[in-house]
Amino acid sequence: MSVVQHEEEEDIDLPTVGAAVAGRRRRPWLGLALQIAVILLAGGVWWLASTLLPVGTMPSPAETFARLGALALTPEFWIAVGITVATFLAGLIICILIGIPLGLAIGASTFATQSTRLVFDFLRTIPPIAILPLLLLLLGAQFQMVLVLVIGGAIWPILIQSIYAARQGEALLVDVARTFKVPRRWFIRHIFLPGALPFIMTGLRVGTTICLLLTITGELLGGAPGIGFEIADAMAFYDNSRMYAYVLVSAFLGLLVNGAFWAAQRRMLHWHPSIRREGTR
């Protein structure tokens, strides 16, 4: 709590805030050094845990990274990564291509929105993993099975947020546009889409997370080729360093996906307060 107070005390006086910001700008290396220190600390905790736990439960960071390096030289590694990435991307793109236009179209009509609400609400809340056994029996342990699973799970947040987005026109803006007899295309381009975009992006953010989670899950539980399968396989052989190496790879994939998403969001929503504020700091 004392830390909180300190921060807020700094914030109370406006000139102090200015000084703090200027101070940070003069010493950007301080922030970076702190980040690196925390990374090293996390590595240290991992190393410590690996030495304290019974042998065979947790490989040390060095062991894991060495194994990762060795794996990266094998073609099997890149095939597994390639299949996972391709399944993830294909699933996400199909979800976007179906979810956003369909959602905006449904949202534009009150009748369609109300008629479909219960159905989508119900379908959305079924944990997609529930249909995995059925998909396994129907499609086998193949990437197509994972793809269907991914689409079945990740399309709902995108679709539902798009419906919501289409209905979310700020009343005042709509009225002003009507008063000034703004042309329809200009209205869509400059008022409707910018207003809808933050909501669509929220859906995409959730959808992207679920997409990757389900890709790995489908492979891990369904035994379809990819990173998930490699993790399950390593576990079956009690090959801990390989297991950790592949979990690291999945984390790296997640980082990459999140990073790409944030970059896209910053570009598209640079005017939004949540991002604007980050930029001015």
């Binding site: 921060e7 980040q35 947790m58 899950t217 990173i227 399950a232 592949y246 979990v247 984390a251 999140n258």
Partner: peptide
């Protein structure tokens, strides 16, 4: 407390990026 957030961001982002299910084998061990 933005300094904490700033300093821990890379580690948090990495931890957050791990798909929860991929941790199942590690949690079992």
């Amino acid at each position: 407390v933005t300094p904490i957030e700033h300093a821990t961001r890379p580690v948090l982002e990495t931890l957050r990026a791990v798909p929860g299910v991929a941790l199942l084998p590690i949690f079992i061990v």
